[in-house]
Design a protein around this nucleic acid. Structure first.
Length: 911
RNA sequence: GCCCGAGUGGCGGAAUUGGUAGACGCGAUGGACUCAAAAUCCAUUAUCCCUUAAAGAUGUGCCGGUUCGAGUCCGGCCUCGGGCACCA
């Protein structure tokens, strides 16, 4: 009987679904374990072979944990709001909901074929009103909260209002508060709310007609679509993520994430400790204090000018009458530049003199104030002191505009470039002279504070998240405008559903698509017309899986307490600075308000590598329809053409297929090598346009899901990026066939109920030990290797004993669940193999009887000694010395030292 | 420019963390079975010297160091991949 994966796989997939084998409920008698995949955006292209890599790994781990007795929560859903569906809707007029549902159905079909152990009863979709009710709810909670820096946590805004009324807070005294009208109070509270509306410079993308978050922009182009992005001042909803910067940074420490990912988050949060210093300035006779931020207070003696950001509010008051025109011109110039141009031109230095002067607070020297785009309004105070000798940007500026450069470190040469390194000994620096730079940084900070010139200050690069999108296919804001005052829709009336509209384009007067909706009002007042961004729905989905149908809470408290947070999260690195920051922020906020029981959402995180495509090429001789095989292509002038990889096997082109592929190739001629056409290849992103997409369905058709699962894991370490190459898949497929033959021969079932031999038990237990160790370390490729060895050994032993094969099936079940299920039930079990328990590891069975010690003379191996495992180093040494030849050799050398290492090696060293 | 990570056969990759480098798989070569093919099985497969074998030499990007012993540790380079990028 042969291994017929087709009937096996469809049979057991149907069985699992019909019996809800993977349905999970809270069970206090068993420990919980939560394994989560980053849920996919259901794109129109469907899954390619790279997508399931992480899902397979998490499924293996989930199944393993179940065998180990854990109650495993392993859910799946869809990140279903998003731009592509909307773009498609604009082009075709088809409602995004329709295309989204179609895509979801296709994804589901593809996922089901791979045999995942998801509890589909817990599926969530972010575009489902029952789901986004809780996204809107969280937004309202943020709207209704402020961040109290004294305790570093979110608190209800009512507590702040009480503070305003009684004692005042910051610059809002009770008098100011009580005198303010409703609009005034709303404006004051907006400065404190965690979800707030404020004017800010945003990334505006004309091509998409919407604003974008920083992580949605790369190199000045939108990540989706690649349209240019410009800076624009707009009033937008924002989330006060920056308030959480210190906590987001500090709690990173305890997370079981990779160092590189933590490092990326650290850079993105961008903590820098420095000093805020006040410089007196004067402009046309008027004086004005200006605060600057610096991390190098020690270089104050070299501050020869100051620079303001063009967008700084100080520019107007610090521009002298005489420079007014020049400054206005410069500001105009800066404004016309897009973000992309600014990035492209970082090397070109621009700026204008403001006409005013500042006073160096330590030297008392009068220094000019300039305006330049290399200073950013959004960071620090938007104003800096420039120290050209020790900052490369200031240096370039000083060179261009001929400003003085004063070196402050002994022996440094600043004639060609600045000396940015924080090393050396200070000079030209008054009280700092003779100190090393590191000492001087601290001494200068102390000095500034003691003399009242400024204060220590920590800045973060992390900005507040811009939360409005001028789009249709997203969560509507539960906010309406009562006489212009943003007012929340009552919680009891959530969800506020997306209205139907006739077209998904922006309205004719440039308003978001929701402006087209009829009656987009609440109690007669207009509702907010933007929608929430993609990360809104994905920020707390892991919580909703715990209790997906709860109508009265995001997640029930007891249920949340049972599952805790996500024990294992698997997904790509591309979310390092987007989703993974927002989710942590969102979770911390809910934690502050007592809605969730753990501060951090994801305990352990693994980033699976990308699976790249392996493209194949043919080489056409320029100006002809003749194609030359790869090895001979250097003899001609050729153009490289992508060829569909389904026409290529082991780099050999299917010539007939190629001719039939496209009309233009029907009459193609070929120059062959050894009678074959060899294609060239390259590793590239998997994409339709490169004809290198491999569909998991095709693999399931020709090899089966179990082979696909094994092969994806066997390809290499999970975290590593690697190209997909179908070549090696026969190996793991052969392994499954061999596995099958342990149970069936040509005539049928051959498993017998006999006592296993010691040798057979050794093979089994070696594997149990190895698998346990490897799975815990996520080294799935080596587990599979161990499996192959074990199966080869058992085949050689002709082992057909149930006592060995039965646990072997359980061991295989996380990797290849279908074949395991088939054999498990054939062995006479009535329950699914996923209800079995992981075989117990008995180290004595796995142990080798003897240890072979290689014996080396001065590091070179000469012979080996076989000793019982229990032998002591002294006994081993005695055995070495007693070997006849060796004794002779040892006798010749008067002094030797025998080193016996428990790591199984013996070294004889001649002194 | 700054910060991470990685360099091992024809290929994907192992190596108990300082202890016989190249596990396992692919590919390749030879053989068995077959009229033949597929499937399956067996053998060989880092390089050099050699008819073959034994034996030897070389070998984990490069140069040097520590050690009885280095793919692994230290110092200095080179190359590739990823992230950030006027953040004062």
């Amino acid at each position: 009987m042969d291994y017929d994966f087709k009937s096996i796989e469809s049979k057991w997939q149907a069985y699992w679904a019909a019996n809800k084998v993977f349905k999970v409920t809270e069970d206090n008698s068993r420990p919980s374990f939560y394994v989560l995949d980053m849920f996919p955006y259901p794109s129109g292209a469907g899954l390619h072979v790279g997508h399931p890599l992480g899902y397979i790994a998490s499924d293996i781990f989930s199944r393993y944990k179940r065998l180990k007795g854990f109650n495993v929560l392993h859910p799946m859903g869809y990140d279903a709001f998003g731009l592509p569906a909307e773009q498609y809707a604009i082009q075709t007029g088809q409602h995004p909901e329709v295309t989204t549902n179609n895509n979801v159905a296709r994804y589901r079909q593809q996922l089901d074929r791979i045999g995942f152990s998801y509890d589909w009863d817990r599926e969530v979709r972010t575009c489902d009103p029952d789901y986004y009710k809780w996204t809107q709810w969280a937004f309202l909670k943020m709207f209704d909260s402020w961040f109290d820096p004294s305790v570093q946590k979110a608190r209800p805004i009512s507590e702040l209002v009480a503070k305003f009324e009684s004692e005042g807070y910051e610059d809002v005294t009770p008098e100011i508060w009580n005198a303010a009208d409703e609009k005034g109070k709303s404006d004051i509270l907006m400065r404190y709310r965690i979800a707030y509306q404020g004017e800010t410079s945003v990334n505006w993308c004309e091509g998409l007609g919407t604003v974008l978050a920083n992580d949605e922009v790369k190199d000045g182009l939108s990540v989706r679509g690649g349209y240019p992005v410009e800076q624009k001042k707009m009033t937008q909803w924002q989330l006060r993520v920056s308030a959480y910067a210190p906590r987001l940074l500090d709690s990173l420490e305890d997370l079981n994430w990779t160092d590189s990912l933590k490092e990326m988050q650290r850079n993105w949060i961008g903590k820098s400790e420095g000093t805020e210093m006040v410089f007196q300035t004067e402009c046309d006779g008027r004086t004005l204090p200006v605060t600057i931020f610096t991390t190098r207070a020690d270089t104050i003696y070299g501050a020869t000018f100051m620079v303001l950001a063009p967008e700084s509010e100080l520019v107007e008051s610090l521009t002298s009458e005489s420079q007014k025109e020049a400054v206005a011109e410069y500001l105009k110039y800066v404004k016309t530049k897009t973000e992309r141009e600014r990035i492209a031109q970082t090397k070109t230095v621009t700026g204008v003199f403001s006409g005013s002067y500042g006073v160096n607070p330590i030297t008392g020297e009068r220094i000019p104030i300039w305006i330049a785009e290399y200073v950013l309004a959004g960071y620090g105070t938007g104003a800096i002191m420039a120290v050209p000798a020790h900052d490369s940007r200031d240096y370039a500026f000083a060179k261009k505009f001929d400003l003085p450069i004063i070196p402050l470190i002994e022996g440094c040469d600043v004639s060609e470039e600045s000396f940015d390194a924080k090393e050396g000994v200070m000079c030209n620096s008054g009280f700092l002279n003779g100190l090393t730079v590191k000492e001087a940084i601290e001494a200068a900070k102390d000095y500034v504070e003691q003399h009242g010139l400024g204060v220590r200050k920590t800045n973060y690069r992390l900005r507040d998240a811009i939360f409005s999108r001028q789009r249709y296919w997203g969560e509507p804001f539960p906010i309406y405008y009562k006489d212009g005052i943003p007012t929340p829709v009552p919680e009891s009336e959530l969800p506020l559903c997306l209205p139907e509209i006739d077209s998904f384009k922006p309205s004719n007067d440039g308003e978001p698509p929701l402006a087209r909706a009829k009656n987009w009002t609440y109690n007669g007042y207009p509702l907010e017309k933007s929608t929430m961004p993609g990360f809104a729905g994905s920020s707390a989905y892991y919580l909703r899986y715990m209790d997906p149908r709860n109508d009265s809470a995001l997640v029930d408290k007891d249920i949340n307490a049972y599952w805790g947070n996500v024990d294992l999260y698997i997904g790509g690195t591309e979310h390092a600075t987007g989703h993974l920051i927002y989710s942590r922020f969102w979770n911390k906020f809910l934690y502050d308000l007592g809605y969730v029981c753990v501060d951090e959402p994801f305990k352990k995180l693994i980033n699976q590598g990308m699976i790249q495509g392996r493209s194949s090429f043919v080489y056409r001789i320029v100006g002809t329809n003749k194609f030359v095989s790869c090895g001979l292509k250097d003899q001609y002038e050729t153009t490289e053409i992508h060829v569909d990889i389904s026409l290529v096997h082991n780099d050999r082109l299917n010539i007939e297929g190629f001719k039939a592929w496209r009309e233009e190739f029907a009459t193609a001629e070929f120059i062959l090598e050894d009678g074959e056409y060899i294609c060239g290849w390259a590793v590239e992103k998997m994409s339709k346009s490169m004809f290198n997409v491999v569909n998991p369905d095709d693999i399931c058709d020709s090899y089966g899901a179990d082979t696909l699962r094994l092969y994806e894991m066997f390809l290499g370490p999970l975290e590593q990026s690697k190209p997909w190459d179908t070549k090696g898949i026969d190996g793991v497929n052969r392994f499954l066939k061999k596995f099958w033959r342990l149970f069936y021969d040509r005539d049928g079932w051959i498993v017998k109920d006999e006592e296993p031999t010691r040798e057979e038990l050794k093979v089994l237990h070696k594997l149990i030990g190895k698998e346990q160790e490897d799975i815990e370390a996520f080294s799935f490729n080596t587990t599979i290797s161990a499996f192959m060895i074990a199966v080869n050994e058992l085949t050689a032993l002709k082992c057909n004993k149930a006592a060995v094969l039965s646990p072997l099936v359980v061991l295989l079940s996380p990797f290849a669940p279908h074949i395991a299920e088939e054999l498990w039930q054939a062995l006479g079990n009535n329950e699914s193999v996923s209800c079995a328990s992981f075989p117990e590891f008995v180290p004595e069975y796995a142990a080798e009887d003897n240890v072979t010690y290689p014996v080396q003379f001065n590091g070179k191996m000469r012979f080996t000694v076989d000793m019982p495992k229990s032998a002591s180093p002294a006994e081993v040494e005695a055995a070495v010395r007693s070997m006849e030849q060796t004794t002779k050799w040892l006798a010749d050398k008067s002094i030797v030292k025998v080193i016996v290492v428990p790591g199984r090696i013996i070294n004889i060293v001649v002194k």
